[in-house]
Amino acid sequence: MLPKFAYVRPDNLKEAVEKLSAEGAMVHAGGTDLLGCLRDDVLDAGTLVSISAIKDLRGIRKTENGGLRIGALTTITEVSRHRLVNQKYKGLAQGASEVASPQLRNQGTIGGNLCQKPRCWYYRGEFHCLRKGGTECFAAEGENTFHCIFGSDSICFIVHPSDTAPNLAALDAEVNITGPKGKRTVKVEDFHVLPADDVMRDTVLAPGEIVTEIIVPPVKHGLRSSYRKIKARRSWDFALAGVALALVFDGDKVTDGRVVFSGAAPVPWRSREVESAIIGNILDGKTIRTAAEASVKGAEPLAKNEYKIGMFQGMMTEELEKIARAEE
């Protein structure tokens, strides 16, 4: 059952930022994650500031330099079906279409998808864990089948739940933010916060700040992108393991690009190990084997998620084989 809260719906950004400066105010966009967090006592909001009336935050359009500007309120469905996204940024379109279920994609927004709270069942349940200001992480020694293999620093073992963020990070996209101190821009890659930096924060957003839009840079010549997600069931589920590829090819050779994992770490996890195994190489059997091994280098599996090691390697192999054959 939802706790008590006030609700305001300003129609411009300035007013929204003002309202958000109040103690306990929170942004309400699609609400698919927020309402669940409120209902489960994960968050406590004094005021919900709905940004749904701010028209400027909607829609996808081309930027002057040929990239894309995606308004934060654009629904996941719109992203997954948009013509330009499908033509130029296949990985992002695939990522968006892998989110949750059709109903949730219709309601959820791209900005909200980046700002999601983790799905750890201790965090979401009746456990006063570190991330909620408690003194212990229950996943460390508990039921950690769905938890991370990278980036925990032995503090908090959540995996970041977003399917769009890894793709946006792989494409080197940026997040435009507006807050009480004005505007700023952060790379998607730097948008999420590791437990070692601050276990109580998921993103770099300061109080009162709102994600307004996402800027995807123009497509580099030879870019191929893809997203792959392995789930415990085939729909309405988060990644056990996932990978966003955005690779630049010159003929058969990979000349540049990024590899970002989902289901691996508390943030979308850039695998520089895989990148260095493939950049400068042709994706032949040997390179792919090396890359698959590199994908789990440094992984620190827990008692119940060791399966992710083999799963990431298998997925990496399959996806690199696929992208080697794919068209631009």
Binding site: R119, W121, G125, F127, F138, E141, G142, R233, S235, D237
Partner: peptide
């Protein structure tokens, strides 16, 4: 090992098959 409580008492974590399964 810790609290003995049920961890997946909701429709996302307790995984019923969906239409795609």
């Amino acid at each position: 090992g810790q609290t003995g409580k049920m961890l997946n008492k909701n429709w996302h974590d307790y995984k019923l098959p969906t239409a795609l399964d």
